[in-house]
Amino acid sequence: MSEPCTLITGASSGIGSALARALAPEGRSMVLVARRRERLEELASELHAAYGIKVWVFATDLAASGAVEQLLRDLAARDCSVHTLVNNAGFGLRGGFQQASWEQMQRMLQLMVEVPTQLIAAVLPAMRTAQEGRIINVASLAGLIPGLPGSCLYSASKGFLIRLSQSLAAENHPWGIRVMALCPGYVHTEFHAVLGVEERMRRLPELFWMEADQVAAIAIRALAGSRVVVVNGWLNRLMAALATSLPEPMAVWLSSAFSQRFRR
């Protein structure tokens, strides 16, 4: 009989590792995927020592050709059936749309649109057969508000994950499958440092920021409910509500003004 496991992509830091720590007490075996093997192995050792669970590490670039197929073959070889899938892997591109090369854009679309969709397609049949399972797509507040200058593909990919989650939730609820789009705002992670805008982002008042473990704790609590789109924090929920209730020109103006002041 297949062993149920939790699969987390982008697990080496930030929200991914925070979700791994938050889900580990459930006692299921865990599969951690990211590019940085050393980080993954440190986290795997921590989780095994704390909870006695089996943790498998896959150090791979999921945007590379054939990477998802190889991951799925490795899971099958370990007789691991995914009970909880967390699609978290992603990155940002600095600058406007025309400042990025097509190769960079293609890699972003591969990692943040194609990979999560491919993984969902692979694990969903077994979840339906078992009549249980959970899919957490880590989206963003950026997918709910008007697109910001310098964030074309990022906002678009997160918006895709939100709409995908909503449709999947409606289709698969009868089979006992929980689908959720987690939409954090600004989180203290390595994201902005890797993007090269960390110093600029420090202008943003602390009120806007959350810690990764706070985001993970909110996600775990939300799993027990039925909300599909989960926005972390009252301020982020307020901004999401304003984005949908204000006239579109005003929402776009506010979004662009915010970007000019704190992001560009």
Score class of each variant (00 low, 15 high):
4 P>Q: 10
5 C>N: 02
6 T>A: 01
8 I>G: 01
14 G>F: 07
25 P>A: 06
25 P>H: 10
28 R>M: 04
41 E>P: 06
44 A>R: 02
45 S>A: 15
65 S>E: 15
68 V>R: 05
69 E>N: 13
69 E>P: 03
70 Q>I: 11
72 L>K: 09
76 A>T: 12
81 S>F: 04
84 T>H: 06
84 T>W: 03
92 G>W: 05
93 L>T: 01
97 F>L: 15
98 Q>R: 14
99 Q>V: 00
102 W>V: 07
106 Q>Y: 12
113 V>Q: 10
115 V>R: 00
120 I>C: 14
121 A>T: 03
125 P>V: 09
138 V>N: 04
155 S>D: 14
157 S>A: 15
159 G>N: 12
160 F>K: 06
164 L>C: 12
167 S>P: 00
168 L>N: 00
178 R>N: 06
179 V>E: 03
182 L>W: 03
187 V>S: 01
190 E>D: 15
198 E>S: 13
198 E>V: 06
199 E>I: 01
200 R>C: 10
201 M>E: 07
202 R>Q: 15
214 Q>A: 13
217 A>H: 12
217 A>N: 02
219 A>S: 07
239 M>F: 14
241 A>W: 15
244 T>S: 12
245 S>M: 13
247 P>W: 05
249 P>F: 05
253 W>V: 04
255 S>G: 10
255 S>K: 00
261 R>Q: 13
264 R>G: 07
